[in-house]
C-alpha cells in the first residue's frame, strides 16, 4: 500500500509539472483560438535565456555568479525577452493572419517553433546547462522515516508554484479589465473588436503572459533535468493534459495534469511489466483518445454548439 501511495503521489506531483506547461497553451488558445505549437520551444527559449543571462551578468556587472541580484536580474531580462518575443510574434506572425482559418494560424505556430528553437541555440549556444534554484530534489525525511514514502521537496515546491500561478491567472481573468477583455476576445474576435477592444493589444498581453508561464515552467523543468533542447519535449507531455482538461480552462489544465500524471505512473508500474515497460510515453495519449470519444471538449472545456 505504501508503494501504491508513493507512486500515486509522485504521479500527481509530476502531473503538476505537466500542467505548468499546459497553462501556456490554454492562455493563448483562450485568447486567440490558436493552438500554439511553439509553446515547448518557448519554454526552452525562456529557460535558456534565463541561464544565459545568469552566465553573462556577473561578468558585465562584476557581481558574484550566485548572488540574488544576478538571479532576479536574469529573471527580469528573460521575462523582457519573452515579452519582446510575444510582441514580435503578434506583429510578424499573427497580425497578417487575422481572420484566417485556425489551421493557418496553427501551421504558422509550427514554423514559429523552428524559428524559436534556432534563435535560442543561435543566441546562447547549444551547451547543456545546469540550473540551481536552491531547492534540493530529495525526499522529505519525516515522511521517509515514519512511513517509508518518498515525496520530493522539489516536486512539492513545483506544485506550490503551479498552484500560485493558477490562482494568479484566475484573478487576472476574473477580476481585471484586461481579463474581461481577454474573455471577450476568446468568445468572439469580431464582436470584441466591434465594442472597441483592441485585439492586437490583447494578443500582445496574452503572449507576454504565456511567455511568463513558459519562463516559470522552463526554470522548474530546467532545474530538474538541465536546461537543454529536451525542454521542448515537455510540450508532448502537455498535449494529453489539454485534451483531458479542455483547451480553454485554466483549472482544467491542473486537473488534467493530475489525472495524466497519476495514471501514467500507475500504468507504468502496474501494467508496464506485462507489456515490456516504457509505456509512459504513449499511455497518456491512449487515455486522452478514450476521453475524446466520451467528452470531446474535455473536462472543463466549453461545449461547441453550431446552429444550423
Amino acid at each position: 500500500m505504501q508503494f501504491f501511495i508513493e507512486v500515486l503521489v509522485g504521479g500527481l506531483l509530476s502531473g503538476v509539472m505537466y500542467a505548468l506547461v499546459a497553462l501556456g497553451f490554454v492562455l493563448i488558445y483562450k485568447a486567440s483560438g490558436v493552438f500554439n505549437f511553439a509553446q515547448g520551444a518557448m519554454v526552452f527559449f525562456a529557460a535558456l535565456t534565463f541561464v544565459g543571462f545568469q552566465e553573462v551578468l556577473p561578468g558585465w556587472l562584476g557581481l558574484e555568479a550566485d548572488s540574488s541580484v544576478v538571479f532576479w536580474l536574469a529573471f527580469l531580462l528573460a521575462f523582457i525577452a519573452m515579452i519582446v518575443l510575444g510582441i514580435a510574434t503578434e506583429r510578424i506572425v499573427l497580425r497578417p493572419l487575422v481572420n484566417q482559418p485556425h489551421i493557418t494560424l496553427f501551421m504558422a505556430t509550427i514554423g514559429l517553433t523552428y524559428v524559436v528553437e534556432g534563435l535560442a541555440q543561435m543566441t546562447w549556444g547549444a551547451n547543456v546547462r545546469g540550473l540551481d534554484l536552491g531547492i534540493v530534489d530529495e525526499p522529505i525525511a519525516w515522511l521517509m522515516d515514519n512511513y517509508e514514502i518518498g515525496v520530493s521537496k522539489f516536486d512539492l515546491f513545483a506544485a506550490g508554484v503551479a498552484a500560485s500561478l493558477v490562482a494568479l491567472l484566475a484573478l487576472l481573468f476574473q477580476y481585471t479589465k484586461v481579463g474581461r477583455a481577454l474573455r471577450a476576445v476568446a468568445d468572439d474576435h469580431q464582436a470584441a473588436l466591434s465594442i472597441g477592444i483592441p485585439l492586437q493589444t490583447i494578443w500582445r498581453v496574452v503572449w507576454a503572459v504565456a511567455g511568463f508561464v513558459a519562463l516559470v515552467a522552463g526554470m522548474i523543468w530546467g532545474a530538474r533535468n538541465g536546461v537543454q533542447f529536451a525542454l521542448t519535449f515537455t510540450a508532448l507531455k502537455a498535449l494529453p493534459v489539454l485534451i483531458l482538461g479542455g483547451f480553454t480552462s485554466v483549472p482544467g489544465a491542473i486537473v488534467g495534469g493530475l489525472i495524466i500524471g497519476a495514471s501514467e505512473k500507475l500504468a507504468e508500474v502496474y501494467v508496464g511489466p506485462f507489456v515490456g515497460g516504457g509505456i509512459e510515453g504513449w499511455f497518456p495519449y491512449m487515455l486522452a483518445l478514450a476521453f475524446l470519444l466520451v467528452r470531446p471538449e474535455g473536462l472543463f472545456g466549453e461545449k461547441h454548439i453550431d446552429r444550423v
Binding site: G278, E280, G281
Partner: peptide, 21 residues
C-alpha cells in the same frame, strides 16, 4: 532486471520506484 524508459526520458519516477523496490 530490464527497465525501459520511454523517449525522451525526462520523467523516470516510476522506473526508479521500481528500482528501489
Amino acid at each position: 532486471i530490464k527497465i525501459a524508459v520511454a523517449h525522451p526520458g525526462n520523467e523516470q519516477q516510476s522506473q526508479w520506484l521500481q528500482i528501489r523496490q
